[in-house]
């Protein structure tokens, strides 16, 4: 992305002149104090909000030139783990995880097995029929991750995926994301956990008051 700015009607300059590039297959942290604009940056990347200025490319395509349907297709190649999970309370864990498959038109024959396989992978094989409200914070986090990767995304955006769990589980979750990254998924993780940054040595995009202060080692643009 190039010289991107984001303004909200209620607040201007949430992101200012942000230019960065995440190479395909890379792993990046987005760091910064609370309110620095991490979530806003991720929302921008999954085309959840419009930049008020600048140029945004996802998968090498200029987003201004995409129709709404094409944007939906781009989004179907993304996975997002929301800071607040956004699980749907009245659906079972299974249905929450399977939702992207159903709505993106990618539903196939072996889906049932695949969803269960994925739930086992995040360690929730026994909880498929449970409602999210009966899960712990860390379990919800893992459901959110399973839902984010069910469509086999090329780019995974995770907002504070370790924010609600203790360090031990946080590290397990990070290992999960690393595993995905090794399989070829580009991963962007927003965090303010110093412990995480110390333990995992990946380039960080550091935000301060809506500006990029240090863009890790690569410094190039997605």
């Amino acid at each position: 992305m190039d010289q991107i700015s984001v303004d909200f009607p209620a607040r201007l300059g949430v992101l200012q002149d942000v230019s960065l590039r995440v190479p395909s297959g890379g792993f990046r942290f987005v760091t910064g104090a609370s309110g620095a604009g991490k979530t806003t940056l991720l929302r921008l990347m999954f085309l959840g909000i419009q930049p008020s200025q600048g140029r945004l490319e996802v998968f090498g395509r200029d987003t201004r030139k995409l129709s709404r349907d094409q944007k939906a297709l781009v989004r179907s190649r993304l996975g997002v783990v929301f800071q607040d999970f956004r699980l749907i309370d009245h659906l079972s864990v299974y249905d929450n995880v399977a939702l992207p498959l159903r709505v993106s038109g990618k539903a196939r024959k072996g889906d049932r097995d695949y969803v269960h396989e994925l739930l086992h992978w995040v360690g929730l094989g026994e909880h498929a029929d449970v409602r999210p409200e009966q899960l712990s914070g860390g379990q919800k986090q893992r459901v959110a991750i399973a839902r984010a990767v069910i469509n086999r995304p090329n780019l995974l955006l995770a907002d504070e995926p370790t924010g609600n769990v203790d360090d031990g589980i946080g590290i397990k979750l990070m290992r999960l994301l690393e595993e995905l990254n090794k399989l070829g998924t580009t991963v962007v993780v927003a965090t303010h956990s110093a412990a995480l940054l110390e333990r995992f040595d990946y380039p960080a995009i550091h935000l301060e008051g809506g500006r990029v202060k240090a863009a890790g080692q690569s410094g190039a643009a997605p």
């Binding site: 297709l73 009245h90 659906l91 993106s104 038109g105 539903a107 086999r152 995304p153 090329n154 070829g184």
Partner: peptide, 19 residues
């Protein structure tokens, strides 16, 4: 994770999703 096929056309499901 295997690469997702791009260009899949959007065949919307017919059953209500109860969302």
């Amino acid at each position: 994770m295997p690469e997702a096929k791009s260009g899949v056309h959007h065949a919307a499901p017919h059953e209500p999703l109860l969302i």
